[in-house]
């Protein structure tokens, strides 16, 4: 391991840890291919958004401190999710009083936190990936990645270098899919209306695969597509960029 090798702490995210470990491995592979030394701190669970978005600031701050503690030793903190990366980057500092020790630590972690694909493209200057994918894909811009972190061109630029892949844009690719964390179970009918509209846009794009950078949104869209009998496959963008598409797609059987 060379001295210049950036030391990256992978923030796996609770959903990838629980539902789709293959995305975690794809992230590690992409980071290592780009020359990073990757570690996965043990003491991570979740970024705290369920508590934060339910108004429980105290629990959120406690969880945030735990994440900060686990990750502040790394050169970079990288998450294969715009939503969780946005939480660490844009929201953690606001949990602590200006000028406090905790605020300083939160600011420091905030500055070195990145969403996976934008980290590869913007920080590591990765301009192409070594992967092949035989098929057409459409890309959904998840809200946090798109609006909080300004991610839009990066995944498309890297996808364009995947051998055999054809990208076809859908209408309103940056309009919310209706997931919204706890929103989708608190307001299931509204969420269903939103994901139904999203599904119509996905189907109209006419591709055989849907990609996005956030597993929550992907689970929502995949769940809706499968319930409606659609054959469109749903994957995290990291799986395709890493060339790890042997496993069944999200919500698909063996």
């Amino acid at each position: 391991m060379s001295e210049a090798q950036p030391k990256v702490g992978l923030f796996v995210t609770c959903l990838i840890d629980f539902i789709r470990p293959s995305v975690g491995f794809a992230a590690v592979k992409l980071l290592e291919q780009a020359g990073c030394h990757v570690e996965v701190p043990d003491a991570q669970t979740c970024c705290g958004q369920p508590a934060y978005n339910s108004g429980d600031r105290k629990s959120t701050a406690d969880i945030a401190l735990q994440v900060i503690e686990a990750f502040e030793g790394y050169d970079y903190v990288v998450a294969p999710s715009g939503s969780c990366a946005g939480m660490l980057k844009k929201h953690y500092p606001n949990l602590f009083e200006d000028g406090s020790e905790a605020r300083k630590r939160a600011d420091a972690v905030s500055q070195k936190t990145h969403e996976l694909v934008s980290f590869l493209y913007r920080v590591l200057k990765v301009r192409s990936v070594d992967a092949a994918f035989d098929g057409s894909v459409t890309y959904h811009d998840s809200c946090s990645g798109y609006r909080e972190l300004g991610i839009s061109s990066e995944p498309r630029a890297l996808l364009a270098t995947v051998n055999g892949l054809k990208l076809q844009e859908m209408e309103d690719s940056n309009v919310c899919c209706g997931f919204g964390g706890t929103f989708c179970v608190k307001y299931p009918e509204i969420s269903n209306e939103m994901v139904s509209k999203k599904m119509a846009a996905i189907e109209a794009a006419g591709t055989d695969t849907l990609l996005a950078g956030d597993l929550g949104c992907l689970m929502n869209m995949a769940g809706k597509l499968k319930r409606s009998g659609s054959n469109i496959k749903v994957r995290h963008v990291a799986e395709v960029l890493a060339g790890d598409t042997d496993r069944p797609a999200i919500a698909e059987g063996e």
Partner: peptide
Amino acid sequence: GRRGRLRSLPLAGGWTRHRDLPAPQGRSFQ
């Protein structure tokens, strides 16, 4: 099982009323 998704799950009706729940791939990443 081999389906890769659940059509219903106790206490998850808010989710499964309108969509399938993608099943975990087995053991967690950690």
